[in-house]
Amino acid sequence: MAWIVLVVSGFLETAWATALSASQGFTRLWPSVAFAVTLTLSMAGLAYALRTIPVGTGYAVWVSIGAVGTALVGMLFLGEGFSVPKALCLLLIVAGVVGLKLLH
């Protein structure tokens, strides 16, 4: 169960990072509210998961899901541009996360 919560919390990290950008420095109400809610849920899920998953592994997985997810949202929906080198770098991050999970 902790791993499921950790993965969901990682996706929520993508949501709060995207909402933070959309809030334009907290000058837009609804993106700012979305940021606060998703940040709180993401942190609560991480805290729950870290009760049974080692902190080094759990935090690395959480951050990686958030980083890769946010980069993909930027490339696919926010016009940040896609390139093969970017995709390869994201695949390296995913490979590292899979390695951590397998070695856990």
Results as ranks from 00 to 15, higher is better:
3 W>Q: 01
4 I>K: 02
5 V>G: 00
6 L>K: 00
6 L>Q: 03
7 V>A: 13
7 V>I: 15
9 S>E: 06
9 S>H: 01
10 G>L: 06
12 L>E: 11
14 T>L: 12
17 A>Q: 11
21 S>N: 13
21 S>E: 13
21 S>P: 00
22 A>Q: 13
22 A>V: 06
23 S>V: 00
24 Q>M: 09
27 T>S: 15
33 V>F: 09
34 A>N: 02
35 F>E: 07
36 A>H: 08
39 L>T: 13
40 T>G: 14
41 L>H: 04
45 G>M: 02
46 L>R: 00
47 A>K: 10
48 Y>A: 06
48 Y>H: 09
49 A>K: 00
49 A>V: 05
49 A>Q: 05
50 L>G: 01
54 P>V: 09
54 P>W: 02
55 V>L: 12
57 T>N: 02
57 T>K: 12
61 V>L: 14
61 V>C: 11
64 S>N: 08
65 I>W: 05
65 I>E: 09
66 G>M: 11
67 A>L: 14
68 V>F: 12
70 T>C: 06
70 T>D: 11
70 T>P: 00
71 A>T: 12
71 A>M: 12
72 L>D: 15
75 M>I: 15
75 M>V: 14
79 G>C: 14
81 G>M: 10
81 G>P: 08
82 F>K: 10
82 F>C: 08
83 S>R: 01
83 S>Y: 06
86 K>V: 12
86 K>Y: 08
89 C>G: 15
90 L>M: 13
93 I>C: 03
94 V>S: 01
94 V>D: 02
95 A>S: 08
100 L>P: 00
101 K>G: 04
103 L>T: 02
